[in-house]
Amino acid sequence: MNIGELKHKISLIKEETSPSSTRFTTSTWTEWKKVWAKMEKEKRSKIILNEQITENRTILFTIRYQDFDLKGVRIRYKSKDYEITNIEDKDFEQKFLVLSASEVV
């Protein structure tokens, strides 16, 4: 892969929880890190569950290899949030990671 293909700036966001005045916790998604990414392969599928049709949209984001835990991290791109469903180092060279992500609705 050519490094010049990473031309989309995305934000990696983490969920932060804080106590509220009603003794419950509130959660917000805040920006943790910005990285450059390549976007590809938009897949759409429809799922029928309990007589409701749900559309699922999956996008692959390729980023430079990161040596930190991406569990519980989401991607924000153009004001849309994507939940990471899979993380893969395709060539095992620790150069790039491919993140499969589904749009959060």
Results as ranks from 00 to 15, higher is better:
Arg64Ser: 14
Thr62Asp: 01
Lys71Leu: 10
Ser11Asn: 12
Phe96Trp: 12
Ile87Gly: 02
Asp81Asn: 11
Arg23Ser: 15
Leu6Cys: 04
Thr26Ser: 13
Glu42Leu: 13
Thr22Gly: 06
Arg44Ser: 06
Lys95Met: 11
Phe68Gly: 01
Tyr77Ile: 01
Ile13Asp: 06
Lys38Glu: 09
Thr30Gln: 13
Thr54Gly: 13
Ile48Asn: 13
Ser100Gln: 09
Met39Phe: 07
Arg44His: 11
Ile48Val: 15
Asn2Gln: 11
Ala101Val: 00
Ser18Lys: 14
Asp89Pro: 02
Leu70Thr: 00
Phe92Lys: 15
Ile53Cys: 05
Lys33Val: 03
Lys34Glu: 12
Thr25Arg: 13
Gly72Thr: 05
Met39Gln: 14
Asp67Arg: 00
Val104Met: 07
Glu93Asn: 15
Ile63Lys: 02
Lys9Asp: 09
Leu6Phe: 00
Glu31His: 08
Lys7Arg: 14
Met39Ala: 05
Glu83Lys: 11
Thr58Arg: 12
Glu40Thr: 14
Pro19Arg: 06
Asp89Lys: 03
Glu103Gln: 08
Lys41Met: 03
Lys95Pro: 07
Trp29Tyr: 07
Lys14Leu: 10
Thr62Phe: 03
Glu15Arg: 14
Thr30Gly: 03
Val105Gln: 15
Lys9Gly: 02
Ile87Asp: 02
Leu60Ala: 09
Ile53Glu: 14
Phe92Glu: 15
Ser18His: 12
Asn50Met: 06
Glu103Leu: 08
Thr85Glu: 07
Ala37His: 02
Asp81His: 08
Tyr82His: 03
Asp69Ser: 04
Pro19Ser: 10
Val104Glu: 08
Ser27Pro: 01
Thr58Phe: 07
Val98Cys: 10
Glu83Pro: 04
Tyr82Met: 03
Glu88Ile: 12
Phe61Ala: 01
Ile53Phe: 05
